[in-house]
Amino acid sequence: MSELTLTVMRLGFLAVLWLFVIVAVQVIRSDLFGTRVTQRGSRRGGNDRQAQRTAQHSAPPQQRQQQGGGRRADRGRRGAPTKLVVSEGSLTGTTVALQGQTISLGRAHDSTIVLDDDYASSRHARIYPDRDGQWIVEDLGSTNGTYLDRTRLTTPTPIPLGAPIRIGKTVIELRK
């Protein structure tokens, strides 16, 4: 057997061995499991939200924005809530970031916040931003009603910052 052939085989074998190792590592890489983050197109209100976030983080865009249009002028205001916090009930401590999406509340397992609460209906209420970015709570014809502070809701109502929304035994509020 010629020297050249053996040298080629020798190096070839090492290459193949390492190729196997690399393929195995690639499989590990594609196999890292856990949670998957999917980007989705924004729903209604997404633009506002993005503008708001940019405005909060840096000053120059804020100025530009305020020059840009009157409709969004109030978006950068300091009082806008950024998260929804469950303050009473079995889910106490849960927070959901407010990102311009509609938040549904109820016992149905496809709700944004699934309430484990015997006094809540399957689809109890929803919280959504209106066109001005003001957050609105609406009762969805629930059995026991949704209360903002002490009043039972009959129509979609804007939510003041920190006001308790009571659903069954659960209380949620919007915070900065």
């Binding site: 983050v37 999917t38 989705r40 924004s42 997404g46 633009n47 993005q50 990102q99």
Partner: peptide
């Protein structure tokens, strides 16, 4: 900004 704002996290 209209393209990406929300993300969902699922197993």
């Amino acid at each position: 900004s209209s393209t990406t704002t929300t993300t969902t996290i699922s197993t």
